[in-house]
Design a protein around this nucleic acid. Structure first.
Lengths: 234, 234
DNA sequence: TACATTATTATGTCTATACATAAAAACACA
DNA sequence: TGTGTTTTTATGTATAGACATAATAATGTA
């Protein structure tokens, strides 16, 4: 039976362990053998087994506690990973042509909800932008963005007619913290016009806020053309 | 300077390296020193440096290639992680009471779009369910689900009046593959009624399809009450 | 019996070393 | 000059052994 002739790589061990979990050889909530025991079974070392189990734990299959041991999670709290792509890349990878256009650019006093969200002084001036991203000349995304020029002084002179603010920011400065959220909203007249939709259409929207350490950098609202679908497989 | 007196843990090394990336000490697209060199600088070993760099690469900051070396990614293709929670947990963790109710349960011939999506024989019979999930007695999620009873024979006798199909499936059998997608849809009359919304309201919707190896298991469409927002921070 | 202390143990991490492997660079040859 | 082969090198992974640490179990004391 299952005696493992050759010594196995941590990948092999991961595979075997995952199989046993999925086939319920090790039932949910049950305890696995210790690393030492597994190392012996797989004629490997604890270091290698450790890596296998550690990764499986990171992937949400196992829970590990010192002394208590390694336990199979009952509700495999699986994590979906979404890349946070640049629109340009998202469009190009879908095999379409990318085109960008600036709609509006002006300095405004930050509305109070924005100051609150970013934690900036009320009424602080920020750069307000609206832009469009096209895929094969069809509207793909309508972007509304606020940039805290105090945190990004160079933004005042950047030429957002030729490069999208997302892209510009990414290459201009790094960010350390990011909040993303997704909602369904309703197209108002303006959004509908830009996205070639009808007023009232359901619109998939992403909001992103980024900080550089404690400094607020930017807040963006991205409205996708009707029919947009965000998908991931795992 | 920056000489590191004590020997550092892989966590310390990660922190320092990440700082240097974010402060552009190592610019985007540039090459990092080799593991051996870094190990020397941090008065550590290659094994430890390797783990630090490997994890940073997994987190999307670095790109590593044998012989070519370790490179700072220009567009830090950062990955947002969303947990895929059970509704029950999602509601309870928000501090609300959870209540579940079964709306419909019947065997039907799979519609053709479903057969195509799952890769099952056309017209194959599947279990069709509609259910409601409440948070503090307010509608939270309206669930429409199809279960391939051929793959999950025990589903035919399960009592979905007392337990939600998602929860039941999770404890009944594991899954190996999962596809999740998110869209904005429009509430039709039925959805509006269930979610206490108005017809035409924008509705955030999740679709999940799961397989056990190559066997299709279930497909679910989850409609969230208006105002739902999916958020993650990183 | 209740509570504080100590021992035990499984995981967490580091070290030093070795060999494997992919890919770039150097080289040889036609 | 172009092409196929060899060398070099940085990362990838495995091993054996050590100490650290958190959490449980066992023990001793009031």
């Amino acid at each position: 039976m299952a005696t493992t002739r050759e010594n196995m790589s941590f990948r092999d061990i991961k595979r075997v362990v995952l199989e046993r979990i999925q086939k319920r050889v090790w039932a949910p909530d049950s305890l696995l053998p210790s690393e030492v025991e597994l190392a012996e079974e797989f004629s490997s070392t604890r270091t290698t087994v450790n890596r296998a189990l550690r990764e499986l734990a990171e992937e949400g299959y196992l829970e590990r506690k010192r002394k208590a041991g390694t336990r199979v999670l009952n509700a495999p709290l699986r994590k979906a990973q979404f890349n946070i792509p640049q629109v340009r890349n998202e469009i190009i990878e879908a095999g379409n042509d990318y085109r960008y256009a600036l709609v509006t650019s002006q300095m405004i006093a930050a509305p109070s909800w924005l100051s609150a969200k970013l934690g900036t002084a009320p009424e602080q001036y920020v750069l307000y932008l609206e832009c469009m991203h096209f895929a094969d000349n069809a509207p793909f995304q309508y972007e509304v963005r606020w940039i805290v020029t105090d945190s990004v002084p160079t933004a005042a002179e950047a030429d957002f007619a030729t490069i999208g603010p997302g892209e510009w920011l990414a290459q201009e400065l790094p960010f350390t913290d990011l909040e993303v959220s997704f909602t369904a909203t309703q197209a108002d007249q303006r959004i509908a016009d830009f996205l070639d939709a009808r007023e009232g259409d359901p619109i998939f929207s992403t909001q992103r806020t980024t900080w550089l350490r404690t400094q607020p950098v930017t807040h963006a609202r991205l409205y996708f053309a009707p029919g947009y679908k965000m998908t991931t497989r795992l």
